[in-house]
Simulated assay, not measured.
Amino acid sequence: MDFNGQFFTLTHIGDVEDHATLKVVPVKPVVLTLSTVEEIEADLPPPHESSDTISTHSSSSDTIILSSSDESRISRRSQQSNRFEIPTFSFDVEQHLQAGNQAFLKDGALLNHPSLTSSILEKLAEVVFGYTAYPTGIQILTMVEALIEKFPCLREPGSFNGLYGWQQRMKWKMGNYRAKLRGRQLPCPELEVNSRKRPRSNENGSSKGIKKPKKAEVNYLPPLPIGDTEATLDKERVDVLHEVKKKNNERIISEKMDRSFSFRRQEVVKQCPAIHDFRERWPALLSEAQIKEEFKRITTVPLERTFLTKLDFYTPKMLEIFSKKGGLAGTKIRPLPDSLSQQFRVMTSEEQPM
């Protein structure tokens, strides 16, 4: 009666009143199948299934496919493997490299061509910028190792590993590439924020108080999507305020949150709003699905799978530390590892064939 004749979930039989109407809904039992992280990753689609699409998976069954024309919405891509894929160079560069490899295999001759080196560095900088504007030394080393492995004729004579010169050139090339983009006045807010060491003559503000990107923030400050303005994206934000009040529309919310991602990042970085105000403006971020999606938009890394992978990696060491803990804390902690170990032995015995 309190719900105007509408059905609601009954949690206690004592809540049933006389002459009340009950609707029995059979519910199938929930069966949990535990799998290792390696098995979960094996069931996922291959990372290079399509070179011109980016798939954004939510916790629901909906999947949003962004075509290459919408790539400006997510300005950074995720490098799925630890191995850097060397891109295909222009026709003349590829011909020189193939000929150099044949000569290297024949008599060990190394290829020394300054203009060829410049073309290679330019192409590599373009590809690397698609993943990160500020690659670390380890990332550059990984890329150079892949380059030398594919084209051993590019090894440098006199270097202890044949890579050092290419590492230094690539560091300088990335700096020059960023300066070239800034000089062309292209819409790249991430570069502008990092280059503001002092106020410019045509600016009233300063760089004081502006957040700088952290190590894992790949999509730290992406530009606005092509054809959109702050006004149009703010309208998307207002639409989300109405959509969160509806049911079963996670797909629409995810699409609008994805489209307004760059506008939301500029608000966070440049305005630094209070948490209370930000929650009122973006209430959809309070849901579990959007927390995972926002983490993936910023870092290009899946939150839950990464957490479980790291947890599996550190669990044996943590159990070892817990077992050696003494005192009152050890007395309270010790039953937990013992219980986990017992459950693991039971699961292992059930998996063994009869």
Rank of each mutant, 00 (worst) to 15 (best):
L286P: 01
P283F: 00
D277S: 09
F263M: 07
Q271L: 09
A289S: 15
S206P: 06
P225W: 07
R200M: 13
G227N: 10
K211C: 08
A274K: 04
D234C: 05
V218E: 15
N249L: 00
S262Y: 04
I291D: 07
E288T: 08
I253F: 02
T299E: 04
G209S: 10
E230V: 10
I275K: 13
F263R: 07
E217G: 05
F278L: 11
K256E: 02
S195V: 04
A274Q: 09
K215V: 11
R259Y: 10
G209D: 13
K215M: 14
D239N: 12
K211T: 13
T229A: 02
A289Y: 00
S201W: 03
E192Q: 13
E304R: 02
R265E: 12
V269K: 03
K235Y: 08
N194R: 09
A289E: 15
V238E: 15
D228F: 14
D258C: 14
E236C: 12
H276W: 05
R279C: 09
I298G: 00
S254T: 11
P273H: 02
R259K: 11
Q266W: 02
K245C: 14
T232W: 09
V193S: 05
G227R: 01
K235D: 15
E288R: 06
N219L: 06
D277L: 11
E255P: 00
K211P: 10
R297I: 00
K270V: 10
I226T: 12
E250D: 15
H276K: 05
E255V: 03
